[in-house]
Design a protein around this nucleic acid. Structure first.
Length: 723
DNA sequence: TAGAGTCGGATATCCGAG
DNA sequence: CTCGGATATCCGACTCTA
């Protein structure tokens, strides 16, 4: 296990910069969070770590919530650092390290004291570590040195006598922290640091998340914050009294392991201790090594974990509802079954996968298909609440881009779904959403599920040697004459001869698969018609007819959702919004989301649709009119990049918020089909993705503020009633 | 490890309207 | 003849699957 306890250099550099600025100005401090929102000193939710850690006397009021250190404190330190360094040189001689720099000693000492460390502790750390020429490095390494000791504290010691020097310096600092935190914060601080998270990170997270934050939220924040990426956090493991599988699952989740990995761990080794499960999860990160939990367990306890758990699992006595019935665990050594594909997925999704997960991913069944047992999931309360959001994009992105998307969408793992399960065509997509997953339902009528169903009477021309039942992904372009030249000779030879040769079959099938060609007459292949594509994607026939040009119709359809797939995932909204929904539809295209909601029978009270393509907009307009919608379609905004907060706030105020933010951002720079500019999310078109979280956050903040106001109104009413 | 699949882009050429 | 829109042609790499 790696050593925990490090300090975010980013925070420190900010701190140092702010420190130097503020020391001279003395102005009311204001910090800017990474999300761009300003935090003022009067807002308790913005209470930064420096304030939390600041030392205060027992009778002193809680430190004022400022990010900058209190003015004047440096005067106390003035000269002490340099004196200390001089003393060390006198004692130990001049160090050989040329980075040893006395000039920064005062500043480093000052900053550490401002951060809340006792001068004595800082002095001890300096004596042990020295000071380099770089202030940031010095502060970071010294703070780590001290905080590592802090993490090992027993914070439950609460005897007043301890303050009088009966415990060490670290405990003195711990008690200072206790004094400067309200009871609730302290409990959370203890709870989260007990998981092994860095005390400074925890303090910082508590400061940002505010008074009402739960332990889960603090952990989430740490993982979601940019800072967390720079900090290697290995949870420490405490013995647990509650040995139920669900409890272990919760604990592992709270420690910050991914949902998928937690599932894998308890699925495979539900009866192992938390400590062992953590080792197993850590081992998953060792991609090139075969890990064997049994061996770990035996090495630690001398007893195999496989003795007793099979029985209890078979009995299913835990009643665990996080996932389908647990399979009997394997005994003996665990082979490293992870293929290179798994490893790539690890990079893409930030987690590793088990055989079951592998199966789910290979079939792209997400949290379960209609009729399956649904795999439920747990989202942090703050993430799982309305407004709901739903983001879609191609599954096969350049490596790491799904991870990037996740980071901007509350670290929710994408649900991999292939429209093949709902229609005749492949369409492997990733969906990041905060929708509930229980109670999903399919919409009727179902689209054709096989090519033969799709082709109707023309199916009789299908040769028996073409074994295709499903189509490949529908793209934005059809086959051209070039394709015909490739297969024309083969087809003509077939016609003359009456049957194809193996080589001809192979060539014909290559192009037929590549361009989704279907048999429309004997020995005659053709690309799908726009009407057939509409059927495949779950739209009504002639949904795009308003465009007239088949090329345009194919293009806008190729960029669209598969309606049945999306409707299945959105179906949970039907019962929740019986009066209808207010929808903010980004990258609307031809209205796949709107059509899905409509087919679900959800009333579209308001749809604010943003789509840059005029042709696609005209399709949605046409559909809206043809289906006689009673709600409002706001279709004035074309470019999400121009959809700024001012405009958005106007709409939010007008409609009192949105219930759903939905959209699939451009995949141009992500699709494997793109040969010239598959550069990832930073590409010219795909960069528009970042507008999704930007807009979503504005909506969430607005809705959150509205909820608070309602709460206030409600409490006011209660008060009146009480009177 | 070979085969298969991918919400595509840039440029050249064609064609019809004015 | 010019211009603009539509169509044709050429362009691999990355990733998953069996």
């Amino acid at each position: 296990m790696r050593v925990s306890g490090s300090v975010d250099p980013g925070f420190l550099s900010d701190y140092i910069i702010n420190h130097s600025d503020d020391a001279s100005s003395g102005s009311e401090p204001t910090a800017v969070r990474s999300n761009g929102f300003k935090e003022t000193g009067n807002d308790r939710s913005s209470r930064p770590q420096a304030a939390i850690l600041r030392i205060c006397e027992p009778d002193e009021e809680r430190p004022r919530p400022v990010l900058m250190p209190a003015n004047g404190s440096s005067r106390v330190i003035d000269g002490k650092g340099k004196a200390l360094m001089d003393e060390m040189v006198e004692e130990d001689g001049e160090p050989e390290d040329d980075r040893w720099d006395v000039s920064n000693a005062d500043t480093t000492l000052e900053i550490l004291v401002e951060m809340g460390f006792t001068p004595d502790k800082v002095e001890e750390a300096i004596r042990a570590h020295g000071i380099t020429g770089n202030i940031l490095e010095s502060v970071s390494s010294l703070a780590n040195y001290i905080v590592t000791g802090l993490n090992n504290l027993n914070l439950d010691q609460d005897h007043p006598d301890d303050r009088n020097g009966q415990v060490g310096d670290e405990n003195a600092l711990a008690l200072v922290i206790k004094d400067s935190l309200p009871h609730q914060d302290l409990e959370i601080f203890k709870q989260v640091t007990a998981m092994g998270f860095d005390a400074v990170e925890v303090s910082k997270a508590i400061g940002i998340c505010g008074e009402a934050a739960t332990g889960d939220q603090i952990v989430d924040h740490i993982f979601q914050s940019d800072a967390s990426e720079k900090v290697e956090i290995i949870p420490k493991v405490e013995p647990v009294e509650d040995n139920s599988i669900s409890s272990k699952f919760d604990q592992l989740l709270n420690m910050g392991y991914s949902y998928v990995n937690c599932r894998r761990a308890v699925d495979t080794y539900g009866q192992a201790s938390i400590c062992e499960l953590c080792d197993f999860l850590d081992a998953l990160g060792e991609e090139d090594k075969n890990q064997d939990l049994d061996a770990l367990i035996v090495a630690r306890s001398g007893k195999s974990s496989s003795d007793s758990d099979d029985e209890s699992m078979e009995n299913g006595k835990e009643g665990f509802d996080y996932f389908p019935p647990i399979k009997k665990r394997r005994t003996g050594k665990i082979k490293n079954t992870r293929t290179s594909k798994d490893k790539r997925l690890c990079v893409s999704y930030g987690s590793s996968i088990s055989r079951n997960e592998d199966l789910i991913r290979r079939n792209r069944t997400g949290f379960g298909l209609p009729g399956d047992i649904v795999i439920t999931r747990t989202l942090p309360p703050d993430v799982g609440r309305p407004p709901y959001f739903y983001f879609e994009n191609v599954e096969n992105m350049p490596s790491g881009e799904w991870s990037n998307i996740q980071r901007h969408l509350f670290n929710i793992e994408p649900e991999l779904m292939d429209a093949l399960n709902f229609s005749v065509c492949r369409r492997p997509r990733g969906y990041v959403h905060n929708l509930p997953v229980e109670g999903r339902m399919d919409i009727l009528p179902k689209p054709p599920m096989t090519i033969q169903e799709l082709m109707g009477s023309a199916a009789k021309y299908w040769p028996d040697w073409d074994k295709r039942v499903k189509l490949n992904t529908i793209c934005t372009r059809s086959a051209t004459d070039f394709v015909w030249r490739q297969i024309k000779d083969h087809l003509q030879a077939c016609e003359k001869r009456g049957h194809p040769l193996d080589e001809e079959k192979k060539n014909i099938m290559y192009w037929a698969r590549k361009w989704n060609l279907v048999w429309v007459r004997p020995n005659k292949l053709a690309p799908l018609s726009p009407e057939e594509v509409e059927k495949c994607l779950g739209f009504d026939v002639n949904h795009t007819r308003v465009l007239y040009s088949p090329v345009d119709r194919i293009k806008v359809l190729g960029n669209s959702f598969q309606v049945n797939t999306v409707a299945y995932q959105l179906s949970v909204l039907k019962a929740r919004y019986p009066q209808g929904m207010r929808v903010l539809s980004l990258f609307s295209g031809i209205g796949g989301a709107e059509v899905a909601l409509h087919k679900l029978g959800i009333i579209l009270k308001v749809v604010v649709s943003i789509e840059i393509d005029e042709k696609a907009r005209s399709v949605l307009d046409s559909w809206w009119k043809s289906t006689d919608q009673k709600g409002h379609l706001i279709h004035d905004h074309t470019d999400v990049k121009l959809f700024d907060s001012r405009v958005l706030m106007g709409l939010l105020n007008k409609y009192k918020g949105f219930d759903l933010v939905i959209g699939g951002s451009p995949c141009n720079n992500l699709s494997g089909n793109n040969r010239s500019s598959r550069v990832g999310l930073q590409g010219t078109e795909s960069v528009a993705f970042f507008e999704f979280p930007r807009i979503l956050n504005v909506v969430r903040d607005f809705m959150s503020d509205m909820d608070e106001e309602l709460d206030l109104d409600f409490s006011g009413l209660l008060g009146q009633n009480n009177v």
